[in-house]
Computed example of a mutant assay.
Amino acid sequence: MSRVLGTVERIWRYPIKSTGGELLDEAAVDARGVVGDRLYAVRDAEGRFGSGKNTRRFRRMPGLLRLRSRYPGGVVTKVPELLDPDGVPVPDPTGYVRRYLGRDDVDVAREGTVSHVDQLPLSVLTTATLDWVGSAVPGVPVDERRFRPNLLVRTPPGTPAFVEDEWIGGAARIGDALRIGFERSSERCVMINEAQQDLPHSPLILRAVAQAHDTRLDVLATVTHPGRVRLGDTVELL
């Protein structure tokens, strides 16, 4: 028997990886995720992607989250726009990022043979979990931008925090056609502490998530049947 988990409250796409994204009223979703999501990235000469941390795959590039990206007119076939911290589009994304970061070895590049997706195609977060984070760090501004989900799902009153854990291993229908499979949760890092636009830096956020839930937050999903997602769509556990 199916069960309604909630409704789609917000849809996010991040055209340039590790920058702020764009809110959508609806989006196409295919096997890779929201179409156009993280299709571009800031990449250094070694092929590492700009991020808030240093690893074999990532290069720490502080300040990227203060920038935003979007597709002009929502057309994914176009190169995304990069917006400066004041929300003004820049004419040359690569040239701007080089000046902004103070380094000449970076480019804004389209995905090639190495995927820009960190883990799985879709990140789904509930308002129940987001509300818990806000209560765990009083005085620190918190919204879903900290956690960069693709879908924020409005859950019914009384839904417990981290309810996403209960969905793992299950499948859901979103709207008319989209089908996804819940696989696992994300392991969070310092990125959720980083400043972006009107959200200040705060180490309390990662600390709270680590103490309460072993740094895990959201649920990651694969796409088993492509479709469209729209604001207000029902998310139904199958």
Score class of each variant (00 low, 15 high):
residue 93 P to L: 04
residue 82 L to N: 13
residue 12 W to T: 12
residue 168 I to Q: 10
residue 187 E to S: 07
residue 132 W to I: 15
residue 1 M to T: 14
residue 34 V to G: 11
residue 203 P to M: 06
residue 112 G to V: 06
residue 219 V to S: 11
residue 47 G to D: 10
residue 102 G to S: 11
residue 78 K to H: 04
residue 159 T to K: 05
residue 217 L to K: 01
residue 49 F to I: 15
residue 157 P to T: 01
residue 174 I to S: 07
residue 199 L to H: 01
residue 81 E to F: 05
residue 59 R to F: 01
residue 10 R to S: 13
residue 53 K to I: 08
residue 39 L to Y: 00
residue 38 R to D: 06
residue 16 I to Q: 05
residue 11 I to S: 13
residue 193 N to H: 00
residue 223 V to F: 02
residue 128 A to S: 15
residue 184 R to N: 09
residue 141 P to A: 12
residue 200 P to N: 03
residue 125 L to Y: 00
residue 189 C to F: 03
residue 236 E to H: 03
residue 122 L to T: 04
residue 119 Q to L: 08
residue 46 E to C: 09
residue 44 D to Q: 04
residue 134 G to H: 02
residue 210 A to V: 05
residue 176 D to Y: 01
residue 55 T to C: 05
residue 221 A to Q: 05
residue 148 R to F: 00
residue 148 R to A: 12
residue 127 T to L: 03
residue 164 E to M: 15
residue 214 D to N: 08
residue 178 L to C: 01
residue 201 H to S: 09
residue 172 A to I: 04
residue 181 G to V: 03
residue 108 V to S: 00
residue 31 A to T: 05
residue 154 R to H: 09
residue 53 K to T: 14
residue 78 K to D: 04
residue 194 E to M: 13
residue 175 G to C: 05
residue 131 D to K: 11
residue 48 R to Q: 13
residue 186 S to P: 02
residue 167 W to Q: 14
residue 164 E to V: 15
residue 48 R to C: 14
residue 224 T to H: 00
residue 24 L to Q: 10
residue 108 V to F: 03
residue 216 R to I: 02
residue 24 L to H: 01
residue 74 G to M: 08
residue 64 L to H: 06
residue 12 W to A: 14
residue 80 P to F: 00
residue 234 T to L: 14
residue 105 D to H: 11
residue 164 E to W: 01
residue 129 T to A: 08
residue 222 T to R: 15
residue 130 L to W: 03
residue 198 D to V: 10
residue 120 L to S: 05
residue 219 V to Y: 03
residue 124 V to K: 05
